[in-house]
Amino acid sequence: MASSSIPAGGHVDPTRRDFLMVATGAMGAIGTIAVAWPFINNLNPAADTLALSTVEVNVAPVQVGQAITVKWRGKPLFIRHRTPEEIKAAEAVPMSELRDPQTDNSRVTDTAKKVRPEWLIMIGVCTHLGCVPLGNNPGDPKGEFGGWFCPCHGSMYDTSGRIRKGPAPLNLAIPGYLFTSDTLVRVG
């Protein structure tokens, strides 16, 4: 560094100068990061966006075999009242056949650890690239596994919302939810 420019006969302590250079540089870098952070952080979700993150749904009108779509955090939330056959089909799948192995039971448990196999509550966003899979409305294609079919790139989900075929890597996500009564569920 500075040692090459020391004049002959002059006395300069190179280690001290080096230390000052490194210390100044380090402080400058820390300062730059500290100033950059609010600009980066500014792009994160704002408080009002976060405040919209809970929704309460009355599921009493949803008949067995029906499904509804509710908007939550700007995304569709799928709530399906499963038939006994659908539950049985989901429970019968061996773990070895699953790309993202999860038991059906673990996907229908609320935050109070209560299992309600008749209610499947999921975020209706394909884990591939974020499309909304079809299968919630009567007449929709449900794919080869009787659950959901994503029209964008052909992912297929079973009656437990688990990925079975196509490019998606993961099962449809289960949000944290709690049944506050037998017919009222709070999501988020």
């Binding site: 792009l43 994160n44 979700p45 704002a46 966006t49 993150s53 955090r73 700007g74 995304k75 966003v125």
Partner: peptide
């Protein structure tokens, strides 16, 4: 992705 969106989906932010 949440940071890019400024939320939990593509929205006003």
């Amino acid at each position: 992705t949440t940071w890019l969106w400024g939320g939990f989906a593509i929205d006003n932010p």
